[in-house]
Amino acid sequence: MKLSTNRTLLRPFQPSDFSDTFAFYQREDVCQFLLHGPWTDENAMQMFEEKVQKNNFSTNNALQLAVEFEQQVIGDISIFPTDMPASVEIGYVFHPAYAGQGFALETLQAVINYLFETQKIHRIQAVLDKRNVASEKLCQRIGMRKEGDFKKDFWNKGMWTNTLIYGLLREEFYS
């Protein structure tokens, strides 16, 4: 699967993407709200190979897409099937050097359109750490609505964290 926007190409990860991807996943500021810590020299190749293997979306398989801008990987979009039919969870990570330039909005709009149009997905959700204000604003900008605000419901990195859930139905996207 490949998608393009005005500035980016979204495609499955390739082995040649390792150094670009490691450049942002090794950063503490990038991983602070993720379920894992920064990649290290010891675990980076294993973590990256998991992304490369997730290259075909289906009801049983997650898809990881590299976001390429000017022949460099600047981000990562994840699409995970949920336990409900025709429902997925999306996740996204971008190199901070590209923050505030509309790349996340642009790429997520293309992914959402693809999921609703091509894959006939019924519902898309995003689950995020409430401290990640930028991610919450992005969910709102792409038209998602807040469905849940859970207090200290998730144990991550030695602390209880608050979780937000945002959702978008196919009919809401086109209204």
Rank of each mutant, 00 (worst) to 15 (best):
G100Y: 13
E42A: 14
P96R: 00
A99Q: 07
N56M: 03
A99E: 10
V30E: 03
A86W: 02
A126G: 11
A23Y: 00
K120H: 15
S78T: 11
N6H: 10
N60W: 12
L34C: 12
V111D: 08
V127D: 02
A104Q: 01
D153P: 01
F13T: 01
K151F: 15
F80D: 07
G75Q: 00
L169K: 01
F69M: 10
G102C: 08
F57N: 00
K51G: 05
S16T: 14
V93G: 04
T40I: 06
A99K: 00
V67W: 03
F154C: 13
D83H: 10
R145K: 14
A62T: 08
E49M: 13
F116Q: 03
N113Y: 12
I79N: 04
L115P: 12
I121H: 06
N60R: 08
Y98C: 08
G102M: 08
Y166M: 05
R27L: 15
A23E: 09
P96T: 00
I165C: 14
F150C: 06
L128V: 05
M45V: 12
G143M: 05
Q119K: 14
F154R: 09
C31N: 12
C31G: 00
R123Q: 15
S19H: 13
Y174M: 03
I74C: 11
T40N: 07
L128C: 13
H36I: 13
Y174D: 03
F103V: 02
A97L: 10
N56L: 09
I90A: 05
D41E: 14
L128K: 04
H36P: 00
I124T: 03
I165G: 06
D83E: 11
F154T: 11
N61Q: 11
D41A: 12
M1E: 05
E68A: 09
F103S: 02
V30N: 04
F116M: 05
L34N: 07
K51T: 07
N55C: 10
M45Y: 10
Q64H: 15
P38T: 04
Q71T: 14
K120Y: 13
Q26C: 13
N56P: 01
D149F: 07
K130Y: 03
E50M: 11
T82L: 08
T21S: 07
S78V: 07
G91S: 07
V73Y: 06
P15Q: 12
Y92H: 10
Q119F: 12
A134N: 07
Q140F: 06
D29A: 10
S16I: 10
M45D: 09
I90D: 04
S58V: 04
P81V: 03
Y98V: 14
T107R: 02
V67G: 08
I112H: 09
Y166P: 01
I79S: 07
F150N: 02
P15V: 04
Q119D: 02
H95E: 05
